[in-house]
Design a protein around this nucleic acid. Structure first.
Lengths: 287, 287
DNA sequence: ATTGCTTTGAAACTATGCTTACATTTGTAG
DNA sequence: CTACAAATGTAAGCATAGTTTCAAAGCAAT
């Protein structure tokens, strides 16, 4: 592998002249950011002239200052991106290019970016809404996100009362909105190929005074115009389809947050559920 | 404290235009290094014109591109010198102990371990089975994994013919097994609190000559005794529930792999599907 | 001290980057 | 369908960055 600029400087340090050593010191001092500005800036910081800088980077083996700077940029990028994250082989016994590794790479990056761009106060606000049993909760999704909405619904049912799942894909969904009241919460999953019926549903719910919570992709569903809270997820994947892993993560985190907030009440509900399971012998007794 | 460029972008994201969002995406994707080159480079990377970049940074509150870049440089410098940044904080503006960070930490670790323990040849074998249209494909899951099984079913339907979803939670599932033939594939999701009915289903399918594929947790469902292929996923989470994110990841990767293997045929099916969508006006025409 | 070599910076020049003005396209309301 | 407004890109011009040339200063050897 090629040397970093830092290593090269140290190697040839002895052969440097006075002004060049001065410059080298400044570069190394706040490496590598000090080299990110213009050549003039760097020269000034080191109290040398710009030609000195130009000559020095050529001694280091670069064709000119821009090339030197580009090299620095790449070094920073390598250091910034989580070392475990990039170019790691996730499934070690498979080749780097195996779909397992490629897909996981993309998903990890999605998760990282989703989290980086999330506003924790929005998240907390949403968790708060979901935890409030005074508000009835309606959950729905589109064609692709239907499974996610169902998953959230399943868990929310255990955690709290007054939860309903709406199939926005069925044309009977207006029935489900009949009972909706001012202050109720409608949580909608909507990712690209945004569906008309889901948008209508949001409009109607909004008009009836419901709070609209939206979990969408980075391009944002048109529903965001009605949303009181909205969370954006990265969904890109090396596939003909998008990846909803980051949305699943967010959903589960919401479940955990709401459950934490309402643990006292949830505990009773879970016990009651266990009792019913026992009576119906759904699960194996001994695993 | 003043907002970082990242925060500002997220705040005004809603008011951005198409080209600007495209640009915002590129900036956030490899933030903040993507903004360290020249305005031309950044514009090219985002496939927009340089004036679009210039206009956007003005919207963000900077006098021009150089000032924007200078702000980025200072952010990098701050992050580099800040030792706390070393310990991974996923949602940077939330405290380390925020549920967002704790949960994501656990999930990332799950994914890592899941991938590390997966046998690529098993994965490939499973993908091969799923891609084989000579074998009818049955997909099912339990109480918690039902959503996953439905998600996989939805995608597989687009990719290939002869796919069916079985609700193992309904007691009508034996009906669905009537048609099953020697060599057909039954893919079962089963995680802890392994359900009796799912186990029965596996037994019966096996006896009728079906290949059993299993996606389970690290403790392994009892179904694994019947399984021809089985993949284990880590599902631990700091919550009263398990996390199925790693299973979702694996499912999506399977989808991608099968789709890649059958792209020729899948392409036609997707086109046919698009035609039907067009006729039913399910999606918004202009996004 | 003088010579000649090396180092250094000032200044001119060239190339690239940034901005502005304007034309084209795209979307929308009447 | 037309007209208008918004968004976006093209191209020109202006500004800054980077390089090269050259002359002056420093320094060692005679």
């Amino acid at each position: 592998m090629k040397d970093t600029a830092q290593e090269t400087i140290n190697k040839i340090y002895d052969s440097l002249t006075r002004a060049e050593r001065q410059l080298a010191g400044v570069i190394l001092e706040n490496y590598p950011m000090s080299g990110m500005g213009s050549i003039t800036r760097l020269a000034d910081k080191a109290s040398v002239s710009t030609p000195t800088v130009a000559r020095m980077v050529q001694k280091l083996g670069y064709s000119g200052f821009p090339e030197f700077q580009e090299a620095l940029r790449q070094e920073v990028e390598a250091r910034f991106s989580n070392p475990i994250a990039k170019h790691e082989s996730w499934a070690q016994s498979a080749p780097e290019a195996h779909i397992l590794n490629r897909f996981t790479d993309a998903v990890m990056s999605n998760i990282r970016q989703t989290l980086a761009n999330i506003d924790p106060s929005q998240f907390d606000a949403l968790a708060g809404l979901l935890a409030d049993e005074n508000r009835a909760l309606y959950i729905t999704g589109g064609r692709i996100t239907h499974a996610l909405s169902e998953y959230l619904h399943l868990h929310m049912q255990v955690i709290r009362a007054r939860v309903r799942h709406i199939r926005s894909t069925s044309n009977a969904w207006p029935h489900d909105l009949l009972d909706i009241c001012e202050g109720d919460v409608v949580l909608i999953y909507d990712i690209r190929r945004y569906e008309n019926s889901t948008l209508r549903l949001a409009e109607i719910a909004k008009r009836r005074g419901a709070k609209i919570a939206l979990i969408t992709d980075q391009w944002q569903s048109p529903i965001s115009q009605y949303a009181d809270v909205s969370l954006k997820c990265r969904i890109e994947a090396p596939s003909a389809w998008d990846s909803t892993v980051s949305m699943m993560l967010l959903s589960e985190t919401l479940i955990a947050a709401v459950q934490e907030a309402r643990w006292d009440q949830t505990e009773d509900r879970m016990r009651a559920l266990e009792d019913m399971f026992d009576q119906t012998k759904i699960f194996r007794k001994f695993v």
